[in-house]
């Protein structure tokens, strides 16, 4: 085991800032890629509803 306790794990032997910063960026980028399809689906549905309403009126 490279780390004895949780604070050592967070400090990463002095490189904590670099390691956690890059993992945070990765989380943001991957998170965006996971969320954006869902947003696109919602957008499609909204546009479809709008079109239906326009056709009815």
């Amino acid at each position: 085991m490279p780390f004895e306790n949780i604070s050592e794990f967070i400090a990463m032997g002095g490189h904590g800032l670099y390691v956690w910063l890059s993992y945070a960026i990765a989380a943001v980028v991957i998170g965006y890629n996971l969320i954006s399809p869902r947003m696109a689906k919602k957008q499609l549905y909204k546009e479809h509803q709008r079109k239906l309403r326009r056709e009815q009126s």
């Binding site: 490279p2 490189h15 670099y18 390691v19 890059s22």
Partner: peptide, 28 residues
């Protein structure tokens, strides 16, 4: 892979813990 790489893989001799970035850098 990431839990393993961050928490359980051994420390690199030359670069210390900063090498743990490899587990996202190389795949991407």
């Amino acid at each position: 892979a990431i839990i393993w790489g961050l928490g359980f893989a051994p420390v690199e001799r030359l670069q210390g813990n900063s090498y743990r970035i490899i587990f996202i850098h190389v795949p991407s």
